[in-house]
Structures are given as structure tokens and as C-alpha cells.
């Protein structure tokens, strides 16, 4: 985005995360030419002073785009192709991670197995990095996740989506800490016979915070370790289907059994705590931070 000549921002706000902490665009006057289209008049000029502010809903704006002829000579087509190839290389294949369960392989397997209209919900936590990186959302309205970063969203969102779309497959990716924030709503799924499938990724810690802890205070682990229940037994106690997965190869049959049960299901996937992201480990983060401290 820093290299762009012109940014056409439709409906978004380029808040803290997508602007990488307000560093991609200068505040208040961006170096890039910014055309900001937003339905909320109070959002235009709120952070960035756009070169052109257009108060319009995205639907209406896009309909009006037809008045502008598309360019014939597209000079950046090669760059677009290179960027696409780059993205495919980044997301096509799972990375290698420590431990007998590779969440990347599980997500890639589901990516190829789930129907295009399947709904995937997530809450917040490092487990969701694998979903965001390796899953392909093939239709609009198949991803439900909190841009606000709120934990605990995956399960209730899945319950709501199964109520709204009873015929569609609904999968909730939850972390262990994440799930426990709203885990009581599994009873709601059971009460209304909603066969959602919860993939509960358990690394027995508040992993995101632990990652930041190792970056800033390496080796000084406090308040981030969790001792969890047997989530398969939890599912069964609520009247659902529960199964535990401790190696990658066991996931596919577990998922199939969950589907065939016809019940709300929890697949308790135990992952190594070292596998903190698809591309690094807790140990690597700690060593890097210690080296930086000298």
C-alpha cells in the first residue's frame, strides 16, 4: 500500500490493524492519492484527509462506477500475477510445525472437503492464523469472525448461522481459552438440535498473549498457562458428540464421525504449545528476544 499511487477505499476505515498501526498512510494527509467512499458521513475525514471523499453506500457507489471506462492499458498486470503467485505459495501448502498434529494440514484438508457455501466461524487467538492463512472463502458470507478481536465469538456465531442456514455446513474453529469464554452456548446448540462442528484447538494456554510475553519478557511466563477439561467428554456431557484428536491422520475420520453423528460436535484437537504460528515456535521467539536483550 505504501507503493500505491492511488487507493480507492470502499466502505472500510483503514483502522489500526489494516493500516499497520497507522503507518501505511500518513495521518492526516496521506502521500498516496486517497479516494475514500463510506456510508457514514462522520467517517469521512475522521482520521485521513482524503483527496476525494464520497459519501455513498458501497452498493450505490459500485453501481455508479459503470460510468467510468476501464483502462485499456494495464501496466501492472505482471506485478498482479507475481503477487498472486506469491500468495499461492504462501497459502497453498501447510508449513511444518512441531508436534504430531499439524493444524495447517487439517485446514487444507477441510478446504478441499467442505462445500463452497460452508460457513466457517472463528473467535480470536493464534489458532485462527491457520484458518485465515490456509482456508479459502469461496463465497461471500462464509466467514464469520470478529474484526474487533473479541474472543469467544466462534461458537455463538456458529449457533446463529446454523439457525439461519439449517442446510449449510457450519464449522467453528475455537481455541481452548477462546471456547471457554462462551462455551456454555454448546448447550444452546444441543437444545435446538444444531449439528455444528466445533474444532477446538487446544494448546493449553492463552497462546497469543504467551507469544507477546516471550517477545517482550522472554522466559517469564505468567498468567498464560491453562489446565483444560476433556472437551470431548464436555461435548458428551451436554448431549453432543465428542472426539479427541492427537495426531493429524486421526482428524479426517473424526470429522466424518462428527458429521455422521448428526449432533452438535466438538473435535478436541490437541496441538503442541511450541507450534505458536505456522512459521515460528515459542522457543524461536524466546531466543530471538533474549538475543535482542543481549
Amino acid at each position: 500500500m505504501k507503493a500505491a499511487d492511488l487507493i480507492l477505499l470502499i466502505g472500510g476505515r483503514l483502522g489500526e490493524w489494516p493500516s499497520q498501526g497507522y503507518t501505511l498512510l500518513d495521518v492526516p494527509v496521506p502521500k498516496q492519492t486517497l479516494i475514500h467512499v463510506h456510508p457514514g458521513i462522520e467517517e469521512l475525514g475522521r482520521v485521513y484527509r482524503p483527496h476525494l471523499a464520497i459519501h455513498a453506500t458501497p452498493t450505490a457507489f459500485v453501481a455508479a462506477l459503470g460510468q467510468i471506462a476501464a483502462p485499456n492499458d494495464i501496466r501492472w498486470r505482471d506485478e498482479t500475477k507475481a503477487a498472486h503467485a506469491d500468495y499461492r505459495a504462501f497459502s497453498d501448502k501447510p508449513t511444518v510445525v512441531p508436534g504430531p498434529v499439524n493444524l495447517g494440514e487439517i485446514v487444507v484438508g477441510l478446504r478441499d472437503a467442505l462445500p463452497d457455501d460452508a460457513v466457517v466461524t472463528t473467535g480470536a487467538g493464534n489458532f485462527s492464523i491457520w484458518v485465515q492463512r490456509f482456508h479459502r472463502y469461496r463465497r461471500y458470507g462464509t466467514q464469520y469472525a470478529p474484526a474487533s478481536g473479541s474472543m469467544g465469538y466462534g461458537l455463538p456465531a456458529a449457533v446463529a448461522m446454523k439457525r439461519l442456514y439449517p442446510q449449510r455446513t457450519v464449522v467453528a474453529f475455537c481455541g481452548d481459552g477462546d471456547f471457554m469464554m462462551t462455551g456454555q452456548e454448546f448447550a444452546t446448540a444441543v437444545q435446538y438440535d444444531l449439528p455444528i462442528i466445533v474444532i477446538l484447538v487446544d494448546n493449553s494456554m492463552y497462546g497469543t498473549i504467551r507469544m507477546h510475553q516471550e517477545r517482550h519478557h522472554p522466559g517469564r511466563v505468567i498468567a498464560t498457562t491453562l489446565r483444560n477439561p476433556d472437551f470431548a467428554a464436555y461435548a458428551k456431557a451436554f448431549g453432543g458428540f465428542g472426539v479427541t484428536v492427537e495426531k493429524t491422520a486421526d482428524f479426517a475420520p473424526a470429522f466424518k464421525a462428527a458429521q455422521q453423528s448428526g449432533k452438535p460436535a466438538i473435535i478436541h484437537v490437541k496441538v503442541a504449545s511450541e507450534a505458536i504460528t505456522p512459521s515460528t515456535t515459542l522457543e524461536a521467539i524466546r531466543k530471538q528476544a533474549q538475543a535482542a536483550q543481549g
Binding site: A3, D5, L8, I10, G11, G12, L14, P39, T57
Partner: peptide, 10 residues
Amino acid sequence: HRPLVGSGER
């Protein structure tokens, strides 16, 4: 260079 289009809406 490259124009960039961003959409955050339904």
C-alpha cells in the same frame, strides 16, 4: 505503479 482497491463492506 499500482492503484489499490480496498473494500470493507458487504
